[in-house]
Amino acid sequence: MLSRPRRNRQSSAIRALVRERELTPGHLVQPIFLLPDPHARLPVVSLPGTFRLGIEEVVQEVAGCLALGIRSFIMFPAVPEQHKDKTGSYATSPDNFYLHAATRLKTEFPEICLISDVALDPYSTDGHDGLVLNGRIDNDQTLPLIGAMAVAQARAGFDVIGPSEMMDGRVASIRRALDAEGFTDTAIMSYTAKYASAFYGPFRDALDSAPRQLEGVPTDKKTYQMDPANRREALREAALDAAEGADYLMVKPAINYLDIIRELHDAHTLPIAAYHVSGECAMLLAAAERGWLDYRRAASEALLSIRRAGASVIISYFAKDFAGWYHE
């Protein structure tokens, strides 16, 4: 037999020589759920091992991640109900604990990459990513609100702005707003292909950000998030975001949409990010807790599959654990 692929699998050294994709902690982004109480540490019951943290706990978490080689973080605010209103005005308030936390983190750890979240749902009494007017999510009236939010976040110290609300024209609107205020070096990681997925449950538990029951208003996000059946639509969204000035294109979720990650990787020269979402991680954790899967092997394989599909940036709740295994 002239050709034997197994010859290149005979030892760990040989396998390392021919490995097509490498996954390192430098590719990973650790999510952070932020609470206003500075010393809070509350578990997310539906996502074991993940916590909602106050800023003092976040500082310790970031220091621990840096020691493992994780240098990038994406932060989400769990906003108390008394700060929520129709237009999400607390998002730009000088008293916003989320903005103060960003400034603190960038002061103490200037070397990190800190990524924001831009959407109304953490701040809105309606629980939708866009502004609800007359029973519908109003795309164009949302744009100035998220533009102002992005500027406030850039001013607080965020390195990368993450618009997740899936409004049409959002990237161009945010880019104009940032540039007008002098934040020309602040990047945009657009949630380009964010699907109306069943796998966001633990995330919404952590932030209490699910859509509210309102008369005449959808209780899901299908009118602005993408249909899981669609592939070509993701290419259209990516082309629009790239033309509007996005610096990264994101696919969310990741595992169920590896084909979309590959499509965007092949079609664009921009870095592709993938969000390994809460439900995808919780599903694997539940199987591991029952002894059906080996957590370390399964989590590592899941992350590697996302990298192999073409993602340069992987946001995952497994980031810190993987980094620990990597250094072993």
Results as ranks from 00 to 15, higher is better:
54 G>W: 00
54 G>I: 02
54 G>Q: 01
55 I>F: 05
55 I>C: 09
57 E>T: 07
58 V>I: 13
58 V>R: 06
59 V>F: 04
59 V>A: 08
59 V>M: 06
59 V>Y: 02
59 V>I: 15
61 E>S: 13
61 E>V: 07
61 E>K: 10
61 E>L: 15
62 V>Y: 08
62 V>L: 11
62 V>I: 15
63 A>R: 14
63 A>T: 02
64 G>L: 07
64 G>Y: 04
64 G>H: 11
64 G>R: 14
65 C>R: 08
65 C>D: 15
65 C>L: 11
65 C>F: 13
66 L>Q: 12
66 L>F: 00
66 L>K: 10
66 L>Y: 00
66 L>T: 02
67 A>I: 05
67 A>M: 10
67 A>H: 13
67 A>N: 14
68 L>E: 13
68 L>R: 14
68 L>I: 10
69 G>T: 10
70 I>T: 07
70 I>L: 14
70 I>A: 08
71 R>F: 09
71 R>C: 12
71 R>I: 07
71 R>Y: 09
72 S>W: 00
73 F>K: 05
73 F>C: 04
74 I>R: 01
75 M>P: 00
75 M>C: 04
75 M>I: 12
75 M>Y: 00
76 F>G: 00
76 F>V: 01
77 P>L: 06
77 P>M: 03
79 V>G: 01
80 P>D: 01
80 P>W: 02
80 P>F: 02
81 E>Q: 15
81 E>T: 14
82 Q>S: 12
82 Q>V: 12
83 H>K: 09
83 H>D: 10
83 H>T: 00
83 H>C: 03
85 D>G: 06
86 K>F: 14
87 T>E: 13
87 T>R: 12
88 G>M: 08
88 G>C: 07
89 S>A: 14
90 Y>R: 02
90 Y>M: 05
91 A>K: 10
91 A>E: 05
92 T>S: 09
92 T>G: 02
92 T>R: 07
94 P>S: 05
94 P>V: 06
94 P>A: 11
95 D>I: 02
96 N>P: 00
96 N>A: 08
97 F>T: 11
98 Y>N: 01
98 Y>C: 05
98 Y>A: 05
99 L>H: 03
99 L>S: 05
99 L>T: 11
100 H>F: 08
100 H>R: 15
